[in-house]
């Protein structure tokens, strides 16, 4: 029993990250009916930006180099101990790191949409798909050349000193896992509310149902699509930074496998459906954990994809994919 619960916790943490990435796939598909293959690279870029900001705030030697380059940055030297050792400072630093990573990656997503996808919006759908593949390769190789193939993520002292949280029995949850899980839930909930209640969310849903009609009703289609391309990558960036914090390293090709898994999650839940993507993400995470826990880690993809195929045979639209009205 304890074994099962521990696996469940492992799976939910991983699933939370998958869900965050899957949302980016599903949002774009819902509105443009396009699979944004460059989205996995948003996850990767977000991780690298998160790495840069965290390093700048917490790593003494980076701060020293940066202040040689740009003198006012030396103020970071005095804030560094506060950020890395105290609880309040740590939370503040995390907010800054995630905020900057999300906003910059979101802006990058909007830029890509503007230059790589918008000119192709009225071309055959295959063109945009190829453009997305090209973007993906470009970003990977750009990061490889400009930054490096692998960056070791710094672990803030405060986080390193936290002990695992015991739940009951021998079950324990690592602090970073807890942070990931809670943040994912908060973000997913907020996004869900945003799309279903706010005016902009309504505009997004309208655009996904019928772009032309929505345009006639006075919705600025271009800005709604741009917003979509901001939200998706921003969530991806959060997942990418979590990846770095949890696994200790970001690599230029780290988007590949999480990207495939998240895309699978989006399809499993019903692509185009927000709650479907969340459900799919958590489901895949848990399935992977259970498969590798009870069988072998070598079987985990076999089991996961076998279940995906089964579900798609019996429910071709995905788990929650039926109600076309809800798609965003």
């Amino acid at each position: 029993m304890e074994f099962f619960v521990q696996l469940l916790i492992d799976g939910l943490t991983l699933g939370g990250m998958y869900a965050l990435i899957a949302l980016g796939f599903t949002l774009v598909y819902g509105i443009l009916l396009m699979i944004n293959f460059a989205h996995a690279e948003m996850f990767m870029t977000g991780g690298f930006i998160g790495y840069g900001v965290l390093n700048l705030l917490s790593n003494e030697s980076t701060i020293a180099t940066a202040s040689d380059f740009f003198a006012p940055l030396s103020i970071l030297q005095s804030t560094q101990p506060f950020f890395t050792t105290t609880a309040l400072g740590f939370i503040l630093m995390m907010l800054i790191v995630f905020g900057v990573a999300a906003v910059l990656t979101g802006l990058l997503g909007m830029t890509i949409e503007r230059f790589a996808y918008r000119p192709l919006r009225n071309s055959p759908r295959l063109c945009a798909l190829i453009s997305a593949l090209g973007m993906s390769l470009f970003l990977q190789n750009f990061v490889l050349l400009a930054v490096g193939h692998r960056m070791v993520f710094p672990t803030p002292e405060f986080l390193a000193n936290l002990n695992a949280v015991p739940l009951f029995g021998s079950i324990r949850i690592a602090p970073i896992d807890l942070i990931i899980f809670v943040t994912c839930l908060v973000l997913l909930f907020t996004l869900d509310r945003f799309v279903s209640k706010s005016k902009l969310g309504k505009a997004m849903r309208a655009t996904s149902q019928d772009k032309d009609a929505a345009g006639l009703m006075g919705i600025n289609i271009n800005s709604v699509i741009a917003l979509t391309f901001f939200i998706g990558p921003a969530l991806g960036a959060v997942a990418g930074t979590f990846f770095g914090l949890k696994y200790g390293v970001v690599t230029f090709n780290m988007g590949l496998f999480p990207g495939i898994k998240a895309f699978t999650a989006a399809v499993l839940g019903g692509i185009g459906n927000l709650r479907g993507a969340m459900l799919g993400g958590f489901l895949i995470g848990v399935l992977e954990a259970l498969a590798s826990g009870y069988l072998s880690i070598a079987y985990r993809d076999v089991i996961t994809f076998a279940i995906l195929i089964l579900i798609l045979i019996f429910r071709p639209g995905g788990l929650l994919g039926e109600s076309v009205v809800e798609k965003v």
Partner: peptide, 20 residues
């Protein structure tokens, strides 16, 4: 005995098995 893939990044379930 376990066998993982080279590109694997998440080992949480394996760690759970090892702990057991």
């Amino acid at each position: 005995e376990e066998r993982t893939a080279q590109q694997e990044s998440d080992f949480a379930p394996v760690v759970t098995r090892i702990n057991a």
